Simulated scan of single mutants.
Amino acid sequence: MANIHESLTELVGHTPLVRLHGYEKLHGLKAHLLAKVEYFNPIGSIKDRIVLRIIEDAEKAGKIIPGKTTLIEYTSGNTGIAVSAIGAMKGYKVRIYLQDGVSQERLQVMKAFGAEVTKISEVPELQDALKATNNDFVAATNILKQHIRDRQAAGDSIYFVDQMINPLNPAAHHDTTGKEIWEDTEGNLAAVVAAVGTAGTIRGISDAIHEKSDKVKIIAVEPPADDKKLTGIHNFTEVPVDRVPPSLKENNEPKKGIYDEVFVGDPEGAFKAARDVARTDGVLVGNSSGAALWGATRIANRPEFEGKNIVVIFPDTGLRYLSTDLFKD
């Protein structure tokens, strides 16, 4: 039988783990760094997983109808790209509210898939919310929800993907990403390191791995307070509880046990890590991947990790950052 796929949606997930031999050698690391290379998803990022899950669940529940419903999302880029592409595959109109300051490539890719893209700076109430909360993603999402409710009340057929609060975000990573990591390492795993954005990735992976073993360390990386260089990742410590991503909470309080350690990322260190791994192993990734790799490098020479496997989550491709300063030495 011919090996023919009916849609790119059939290719989401089952991304490879790749050992970073060159990077380990360059930095003299004693642990084995295994990159979960998510740009092998068909639309180029880890967000393909959650968007497919959310859209197909909404279809099954009769909440959205191709040709009638407009899909809406607020994003720093990758989720918007996935919504734009999968929406195009399935016959939905797509409207994206895009954070300012993201790479030009992301904006152009969304438009290429036919999405209507509105920058946050063009929506006064959202811009006001960001200014009042130091560009907090959660706060702006809450404002956008009210904007959408008003539109729905006026009769618009729209559906908010809402990656920030949608429980299918961590569920998708529990059922796919976390499961794949455990199976591909055959349980020979000491730690997983991920940068935190909506926190769906780290929550889903943590839940899946901890169902198998409570000995695997989960390491989270967040940006420094007030940082604007590490786009796509979010502060979750030393912030008011209402600004902590919902995936890190339970009963509206921070949930313990999701992660074992938090690193406040160094933007320059993250950028250097991304540049290094491109040159040592030919893996071209974005700044959130660099932040996770920077964090993994910090633990890779600890005695307890010598000779053991540390999985590093690489959410997307560096091709979406070529217009930024990421690869400028």
Rank of each mutant, 00 (worst) to 15 (best):
K63I: 02
L284E: 00
F327P: 02
T118S: 02
S206C: 04
P240F: 11
A190Q: 05
T176L: 15
I158N: 02
V138M: 04
G91R: 10
V193G: 10
G307N: 08
P170H: 07
T141C: 15
K93A: 11
K228G: 04
A220V: 06
F40M: 12
S84D: 03
V262M: 07
V262N: 06
G257I: 09
D175S: 08
W182H: 06
V102Q: 15
L20A: 15
N287S: 09
K25R: 13
T15K: 10
R106G: 11
E6L: 14
I81L: 11
N188V: 12
Y74Q: 13
E38N: 10
V12Y: 06
V264P: 01
L26W: 00
K255A: 15
G265F: 06
E304N: 06
G80I: 14
A300Y: 12
E24Q: 15
S213H: 02
E122V: 00
S121L: 05
A270D: 04
V283Y: 02
A191K: 12
P254N: 05
D184Y: 04
I72T: 10
K131H: 05
N188L: 07
I299V: 14
P124N: 01
G318P: 11
K255D: 01
I233L: 15
T324V: 06
A300I: 06
T133A: 05
N235F: 00
L52G: 00
I4K: 14
E268Y: 07
G265M: 06
A82K: 12
R275P: 00
G13Y: 13
H21L: 14
L322K: 03
K90F: 03
F263E: 08
I310N: 10
F271Y: 04
F40Q: 11
I299N: 10
Y39C: 10
N309Y: 07
K179L: 13
I64D: 01
F137V: 13
Y259M: 10
D276K: 01
F314A: 15
H32G: 05
N301T: 14
T198A: 09
I143T: 14
I258P: 10
A274P: 03
D316S: 15
I219A: 10
D100P: 07
E56S: 12
F40A: 09
V161S: 03
Q127D: 03
I43T: 15
T69D: 05
L52R: 12
V117Q: 01
F113T: 03
V123L: 02
R49I: 15
V109Q: 10
H210Y: 06
E268I: 06
L20K: 05
H234S: 13
R106V: 11
G200A: 07
S45F: 05
F271K: 14
G28V: 08
G257T: 08
M1P: 00
T280W: 01
E306S: 12
V123C: 03
V123Q: 01
Y159G: 02
E116A: 04
N188P: 00
S206E: 00
S247W: 01
Y97D: 00
K111D: 02
V161H: 02
E306D: 12
L144K: 04
F160Y: 14
